[in-house]
Amino acid sequence: MANPIEVLSWVFILSGSIFVIIGGIGLLRLPDFYTRIHAAGITDTLGAWLILLGLMLHEGFSLNAAKLAMLLFFLLATGPLASHALAKAAFLRGLDPLQGRGLVDRHEVDDNA
């Protein structure tokens, strides 16, 4: 068995992959644009962080680890900005969010009408 830090980096990378996949599933499964932003947020935050942290642990203390940290910072800085810009653009152009617990039922009503 490898040393504990290596094992920790495996755990991080694999759990990061799981969160990336959950984000992908959410992107397909959620009912409207605004809720899908939340799903994309999972990939952008925890999924990316865990994978990059795992790679940093694997890398140890080196120049490449610093580059990974920079990558982490860029994703941290640009991710929310892009999400916000998209949400604002959609909102200002009149795309109304579905609201309330009965939103799936509203779809069914729409189908009947």
Partner: peptide
């Protein structure tokens, strides 16, 4: 656009991996 943006984030991770 949201999907393409998310695709881009994954591309970054994919390139690193």
């Amino acid at each position: 656009i949201l999907a393409v943006n998310s695709f881009g984030t994954k591309t970054v991770l994919l390139i690193a991996l």
